[in-house]
């Protein structure tokens, strides 16, 4: 049986079961509109650690532990951990997960990591190489700022297109069998560089990648946007979301009714003064592993297309004036399987 649809989409014939999920959110995210759906909200940026990198590692460790607890299984039952984050050499993942004693596969997809790890973990299970795997990612405002931008106390002014890196970690436990919801499709995206070089306008840089993956997904699966209850991009923010709608309209896909972006949902943009919205691996991860999965449980969402969007820049490439290559991966989740 052919598992591939079109050029870029994998179909998981029986669906990969989402056994459990967990999300750890930062203080500012805890003041946002989705607060009650997180498993834990931190009271400060440190969470008892002396560096923010340690805090982010602890968040990832805790997101995995909680999801495993909620699944009522033992960490030793996990056969593979797929994880990644934004920091150099993915230290939040490797340091956070080092004590688990579970085979680890590190992934770098910038803010598309949640979708990418879910896709890879599902493929591993569907291929028959594992029964249980975990996908996890994280980001932390303070670690991302010091790596990519300025010290926190530096007095700078952000333009209205700038986004705010979400402090949060989300994880999912996937299994071969169960009562759903199920991951049914994985569309791996191409690297798209639309020529945007402004690191303060990542939404505009990433929107063409998101639009390309979405259009490819619809063509590969012969679906239309209206087949989903909700289409959700990871962190395009206000500017990127509106560009994605335009780009897909030109491709003949109407996204005006059932499309939203986690960067526009995770904060109250006006009240919390978030400019163009949230960003970071954690943005899509805590929204998906909190509010969205709870909506599946409440049967308010039955079909979801989640698109993780990543800007593959580095501080070095930005300083050298390079434009920003971007990637987007799509995961279809359904309450019933196919």
């Amino acid at each position: 049986m052919n598992k591939k649809l079109g050029k870029q989409t994998i179909r998981f014939a029986n669906g990969i079961n989402i056994l459990s999920y967990a999300s750890i959110a930062g203080q500012k995210e805890g003041e946002g509109p989705l607060a009650k759906y997180y498993d834990k909200v931190l009271e400060d940026a440190e969470w008892g650690e002396d560096t923010w990198e340690k805090t982010e590692s602890k968040m990832q460790k805790s997101a995995v532990s909680r999801a495993v607890e909620k699944a009522e299984i033992d960490i030793k039952d996990i056969e593979y951990l797929f994880a990644g984050d934004l920091l150099n050499q993915c230290i939040s993942s490797t340091f956070g997960l080092r004590d688990f004693g579970v085979p680890f596969l590190g992934v770098y997809g910038a803010c598309s990591t949640m979708a990418e790890t879910l896709g890879l973990a599902s493929s591993m299970i569907d291929g028959g190489f594992a029964n249980t795997a975990v996908a996890v990612t994280s980001s932390h405002f303070c670690t991302a700022e010091r790596q990519y931008r300025f010290p926190l106390e530096y007095g700078g002014q952000r333009p209205p297109t700038a986004q705010w890196t979400v402090t949060g970690s989300g994880s999912m436990v996937l299994t071969r069998q169960g009562n759903g919801p199920y991951i049914t499709h994985f569309t791996a995206g191409k690297i798209i560089d639309a020529g945007v070089a402004d690191a303060n306008n990542m939404g505009a840089a990433m929107a063409p990648a998101a639009a390309d993956t979405l259009a490819t997904h619809f063509r590969d699966t012969e679906k239309i946007p209206q087949d989903y209850d909700l289409i959700l991009t990871g962190d395009l923010g206000k500017v990127g979301k509106s560009i994605a709608i335009d780009l897909l309209a030109e491709e003949g896909f109407d996204m005006s009714e059932n499309y939203n972006d986690c960067g526009c949902m995770v904060f109250d943009i006006d009240k919390q003064d978030m400019h163009a919205g949230g960003s970071g691996c954690g943005c899509g991860a805590i929204t998906l592993c909190g509010y969205i999965m709870d909506m599946f449980r409440a049967e308010k969402i039955k079909n979801l297309l989640f698109v993780g969007t990543g800007a593959l820049l580095s501080p070095t490439s930005t300083m050298q004036g390079e434009s920003i290559p971007c990637v987007a991966h799509a995961i279809a989740i359904s309450a019933k399987g196919e």
Binding site: L152, Y154, G156
Partner: peptide, 30 residues
């Protein structure tokens, strides 16, 4: 200082106090 600078922009960057901020903030951070 950063909270004032968020609104003041060049108003806090240009005077000599902004220079102090530019040196002290990375010292604290790193």
């Amino acid at each position: 200082y950063n909270k004032l600078a968020k609104h003041a922009g060049a108003g806090t960057l240009v005077p000599i106090t902004g220079f102090a901020n530019a040196i002290v903030s990375p010292a604290m951070e790193f």
